[in-house]
Design a protein around this nucleic acid. Sequence first.
RNA 1: GGGACUGUGGGGUAGCUUGGUCCAUCCUUCGGGGUUCGGGACUCCGAGACGCCAGUUCAAAUCUGGCCAGUCCCA
Length: 475
Amino acid sequence: MVELPDKRTAFVDWYLAVVEEANLSDKRYGVKGMNVWTPYGFRARRNLDRILVREIEATGSEPVEFPTLIPATEFAKEKEHIQGFDAQVFWVTKGGLSELDVPLVLRPTSETAIYPVFALWVRSHRDLPLNVYQIVSTFRYETKTTRPFVRVREIHFFEEHTCQLDDDAATARVRSNLGAFRAIAGALGLPYLALRRPEWDKFAGAHYSIAFDAPVGGARTLQLGSVHHYRDNFAKPYGIVYEAPDGTQRHPHQTTFGLSERLLGAVVAVHGDAKGAVFPSSVAPYEVVIVPIPSPDEDGGTARLARTLAERLEHHGRRAFLDGGDERPGAKYYRWELRGVPLRLEVGRREAAAGAVTAVDRLGRKASLPIADLEDGVAARLADFDRALTERAGAAFRASFLPAATLAELAGSDQVRSLGWCGEEACGHAIEQAIDGALLGTPEDPVPWLPGSPPACIACGSTSPVRWAFAAQPM
RNA sequence: GGGACUGUGGGGUAGCUUGGUCCAUCCUUCGGGGUUCGGGACUCCGAGACGCCAGUUCAAAUCUGGCCAGUCCCA
């Protein structure tokens, strides 16, 4: 008997209710920002990880895993980096009963754990490029309000770290990462913008940062991940050096690519609706749920048929769940819609007689699938569902932007705003103050629905090199 | 870093101002029985809570202090 808050007018309440009612995460652990992965949520996470692994390995990256603890001495080597993270690291200062001589940092991200080892691994230009990734827990001492998947203190984190020959090669790796993310977001049906962050908002220690932002209603956006070009900012302090073909000793240029469980939060936030979560089939804990509808006077034939169908789908590699509980069918429909299952198969007396099951997808579209080739029918319905879901998200995406011509328009805006920006920091801060949010940055690639260049900087009116930029209220 | 607020079964709540009528209300949930069964069934029986520690008092969910946990606002 769940009544969800209204997504439009009470987004945060809606989001929290969906995460809880869909049973994706249990936040009652008792440590702020550290939540329990439930079986259902864990399945979604595992499916997401498979996509990340598939896409990053397709671009020539290899899996590694570095330790969780970082000596304070290593952590402090890159000056900007330590300053950027100082306020939000957990420290391990005791071993048993005694104080540690060198305190240990619980990694907030792994540059400082990995790069001392990169210094050992990289000797020659033949060792480059070095592309490795890991999926691990990272820890950040958030003092603000935490939210499941979106802002947590133990983060399920994907991070790629690379060493490249030079600036150009590193830029190429950044482009490769942008392509990998396009594939990942495509698998999730998530539209986004790739924006180069302004100087004051780049990753601590980076030469530049590109982040992926998705509108999630009103002027709110959610950062889905980021790619950073470090140049040799870390290679120098960590002593990563290779010998070039001409015999000179050089520092490689480095890049990183970071994603997290927040992608699951984005899936919930973007695709979810008044009935609850909606999962694209790629990450859905179950792609198909089968609901038997027994008749009072039968001999159990319906249950047997439903079981047979579930087994056939599973043997065919489908994540299928047979809901054989003795609730009424309607109660099951509501629950699995709340939990976001893409496709529901109804199996009863009518279906048995017709030789075809009733399939209803999470967008409410009904079809009849012949039992004889159920596997193909289900595959086709899922593909069609994913397409429709992506389209629905795309329409909402396009409707979430509005150009702004004056700072005054930004106040109280309930859309993400595109605007002209001259690139000056003072103008950037004026924009941020006006929208009470952030200047997300400038598009890395041309945005199809925006003309070549904006007329003037929204803050100072300058018409010399002006670029499109986006301003919003990040969650 | 500064300030405000909140804490009652698994979840959501009533009770708190003015201490006693509270072995704590209602909804949901959970276990069991019966009747049901193509979009959230009904009914009967049962289970389950005052964040922790001290104090005031004849008497504390209610008042006081400390702690813990959480939320919000400001820098």
